[in-house]
Design a protein around this nucleic acid. Structure first.
Lengths: 340, 340
DNA sequence: CAATTCTACTTATCCGGTTCAGCAGCTCGG
DNA sequence: CCGAGCTGCTGAACCGGATAAGTAGAATTG
């Protein structure tokens, strides 16, 4: 079953390849009658243009790239990425664009992937996730003139456009809420220390605690896994002056923390209030249901995809802010009953 | 910054394009001296072959496709897919292959994606997931001569090779274990009813229960979401003769079921034993930790990828079995204390 | 009515690789 | 010393589209 080409259509229609090309692409240069005849034949034999041939003639690859740098273990249970990808995909497939995905081990590998994608013209642009402080990927995409959008960076990452959430505001709102409930000693279990948003959240947390006269208990860096979330929680709860509330940088760690609290005989929210950054159905399934900072991650991904497509199209794009995460109070937060 | 082509290398080396092509591809036809000179120049100017030009000359796309048909909502919290993708990716990137991902709404859309990918020569083959009974995708890939590997199908899906787990055996082992503990009334909360493996598990469950003289309580079909898992559990536990053990078709529903049991005042495992099919870190984080059927999903994905690459290479491939899920007893299963 | 413009095409070239046919120049055997 | 066989390269065709340039014939215009 040979795959049909425009030459086949041309032969069947009794015209030249050029005429077929014009007809298929809606260019002027063929009569309406001929165009319809050609389109009918194309439809009949199930013609699809060879993407490589098209790309070779200077057309775009109609593909965008996404390289993720996280171990398989983490990607599995972190709902964030899969939701982000879903959102990106929804936007892309609606516009006939494809997504090329690659999971990489480290920053060098990721840069290598960008260079190869660019050299091979496999993608028109890339989404850069998990921005780090002094991220080495930024100068690379800039040098290559590879269209890119940073997902989650600070306003204006060099010349690279980005989409972002106001994590600082979300965290401040959370601290204010906990302080209003009467908490005077709040801890935070942070994610990977070198991620940009970890810094943003850390300084927002410190600032809010200071302003409200709340003691900010040691915030520890983790890899977002449940294991590390559990370990961090154990350490926090074993100190002589334990916090009455903990804010976790993701939901998996929050659930793990809840387990640890129960295992140590503390009641939630009586002895300990828990807040999760990012909300997944699991936060509602555990008991007590977790208070969480909700945001629409698929929508965030879709926004990033739209932004990247605009950048690829050569439109001037800058920094775009997505909706700030909303605090959804559930059963895991309350006034502290014990005073340390 | 113009991207270098073999013509640029040829000019610099003072040879023809053909010689450069031979040198870069390790073909005979150039002297060792010339080859080294050409490779040095290629390295120096950062040459990468244009994937489209290569593909146009009949080469493979070096890309495989994966279309997933699940709503974003489900993909987010189902660790299965992301772990599978991680495993596939690990195998692919080690062999210089790329992964094209698309999320689709229904079977027709998925078939459309296959046709387009094939017509546009974007992929060399596809992984077909979530096999359904009488799956319409099978005749399509067969007709198109699109190399494909079914992930999780029954042995020999027409002529399409596949990789699979022995879900039946895993389920039988679980029922035997629960029966040995003294359970006489076991329920099962099943996943999507039209998926092939749901049928396999259902008949294995019925058979094992019959053989062991255990009453198989109504098994209900769900969409794998926590909500439906919770609803199904509520119905099961509200009947006059409630089961003393429930087997869930995934871990998310098992966790939701645990929540419902606790909410209804039942103790786990005293009043109700719970087993989850598929194991994620969350199963260990909740209290009590869930007994689960563990399998190495990234390894499963890697196996599928290897198998597909072999099929693409034209090697004769058939049905390959992956390791059977292992029952890992944790704190959610015990002898029943109450007798209904 | 000749000159111009427009329509509806055809022809030819290009994109950047791969690959086949051809061709010097050298080696070697008889 | 001549032809066969090898090495190491060149030139050109080719893949399947896009597109600029050319052209025949009809319609419009001065």
């Amino acid at each position: 079953m040979k795959r049909p080409t425009i030459a086949d259509i041309a032969a069947r229609a009794g015209v030249s390849k050029g005429a077929v090309s014009y007809a298929l692409n809606g260019q002027r240069g063929v009569s309406e009658t001929t165009r319809r005849r050609i389109l009918a034949i194309a439809e009949e034999i199930g013609f699809n243009p060879h993407s490589a041939a098209r790309a070779l003639s200077g057309a775009a690859a109609d593909t965008i790239g996404l390289a993720l740098r996280r171990p398989a273990r983490v990607l599995g249970f972190e709902p964030f990425y899969m939701e982000l990808i879903s959102g990106v995909e929804a936007e892309l497939s609606a516009r006939g664009q494809a997504l090329m995905l690659q999971i990489v081990a480290d920053a060098d590998a990721e840069i290598g992937v960008y260079r190869r994608w660019w050299g091979e013209r496999r993608v028109d642009g890339v989404l850069v996730c998990d921005l780090r402080v002094g991220d080495p990927r930024i100068p690379v995409v800039t040098d290559l003139h590879l269209p890119a959008v940073v997902v989650g960076g600070p306003e204006g990452v060099g010349d690279v456009p980005n989409v972002w959430n106001d994590d600082a505001m979300a965290l401040i709102e959370t601290v204010e809420y906990l302080a209003a409930l009467g908490h005077r000693r709040i801890a935070r279990v942070a994610g990977l220390p070198d991620l940009w948003h970890t810094h943003v959240r850390a300084s927002a947390f410190r600032g809010a605690c200071e302003r409200l006269g709340v003691t900010a208990a040691l915030t520890v860096g983790t890899d977002y896994s449940g294991e590390e979330g559990a370990r961090a929680t154990r350490r926090l709860l074993s100190g002589e002056t334990r916090p009455t509330a903990v804010i976790y940088d993701n939901d998996v760690m929050a659930i793990a923390g809840l387990g640890v609290a129960q295992e140590m005989g503390l009641t939630v929210p009586g002895d300990l209030s828990i807040v999760a950054f990012d909300d997944s159905p699991l936060c509602r399934l555990v008991h007590p249901a977790l208070t969480a900072l909700t945001r629409d991650i698929p929508a965030y991904g879709a926004l990033a995809a739209r932004h990247l497509l605009a950048a690829i199209a050569g439109q001037p794009v800058g920094s775009v802010q997505d909706a700030t995460a909303k605090l959804v109070p559930r059963a895991s937060t309350a006034r502290p009953t014990t005073s340390t």
